[in-house]
Computed example of a mutant assay.
Amino acid sequence: MTALSGVSAKSLAVANPWSVVPPLGNLDAYISVANRLPLLTLDEEQGYARKLRDNNDLEAAGALVLSHLRLVVSISRQYLGYGLPHGDLIQEGNVGLMKAVKRFDPDQGVRLVSYAMHWIKAEIHEYILKNWRMVKVATTKAQRKLFFNLRSMKQGFKADSAAIDADTHRETLSADEVGQVAARLNVKREEVLEMETRLSGGDILLDPSPSDDGDDAFGPIAYLADATQEPTAQLEMRARDRLSSDGITSALEALDDRSRRIVEERWLKVNDDGSGGMTLHELAADYGVSAERIRQIEVAAMKKMKKSLASFA
């Protein structure tokens, strides 16, 4: 930005171009200044463009940019219906203008205003698509064309041909109008209806402000949040996984063979049909002792494993 401060007074008719720039945050004053900056003649524009191209003259670049700020303001007004701040649209358009100035060739036989218009619109289009809150609002070339033309086409239809949605009080396209839009933009009727729904849908705050009350105070963030990703939940999950793998293995290794087999058969073994391992009576018959004795061994083994797991944790 400092390079633009050296723009000649002759071309812009002010002693210091930045002396007329308003304070930050005053959009109306900025627009007023941009509209007062004089346009360049064809000879001046050609001269500055050649200086920039041949000598990388930043003062010449500044003169070209400042003289076309009003073009950005004018184009940005066409995109105010997308719910984005006018200042942001102007800022993105200025980025497109600077890109156009950098790539402009004065020997192509066109004025900078015609060349820059496409760069300014492209930059604003990209900004709108990136910041539009609906997910995947326009992914293909045809859908992008539909996204940027549907609103203006709706406004062009006669008022008596639009149906009023009694619930939302928003104008919706009739069946004939949907067909006209689809034919003119070469898209499917279903795509027109889907895009209209997205454009007419209101935005919802994910996290309402603390001052909100009632239903609005409970935003989608409350049920969209994944509690399993919280740090404490992650730590607990890792601890459980460690105990269920390394911990159990270590606790079983501390048992004698008989106790380990009884615990595995009773608590860890699962058959193909979903049933568990051996019962107390089956284990008792296998070892030639009573079922009560097997139960006592199991209880003692579980107590020993509990101590081992506590020290492991």
Rank of each mutant, 00 (worst) to 15 (best):
A15E: 15
L112M: 07
T168Y: 10
E92H: 08
L199D: 02
A142C: 05
V299I: 15
R198E: 05
K121I: 13
S245C: 05
D207W: 09
E194C: 05
A122S: 11
V187C: 06
V14S: 06
V137W: 00
D167I: 15
G277C: 07
A60Y: 02
S290Y: 04
V21L: 13
A100L: 04
E123P: 02
A182V: 08
A13H: 09
R103E: 14
R238D: 10
A100N: 02
H125L: 02
L199E: 01
N186P: 06
L27K: 02
L66E: 00
E236P: 01
Q229H: 14
E230K: 12
R70D: 10
K304I: 06
G202F: 03
K306E: 13
A163Q: 12
Q78L: 12
A116K: 02
V95T: 03
T232D: 14
L146K: 01
V181G: 03
L58R: 02
A163W: 11
K121F: 06
L80M: 14
D57C: 01
D105E: 12
L12Q: 01
G81A: 09
A175D: 15
L150Q: 05
M117E: 04
A34S: 09
N131M: 08
K121D: 08
A162F: 09
R144Q: 15
L173C: 07
R238G: 11
R295C: 06
E264W: 03
A182F: 08
D273H: 03
E59D: 11
E44T: 12
D160F: 14
E230F: 15
V95R: 10
S114D: 04
P85A: 13
K269Y: 05
R295Y: 13
Q155D: 04
N131F: 00
E171M: 11
D28W: 01
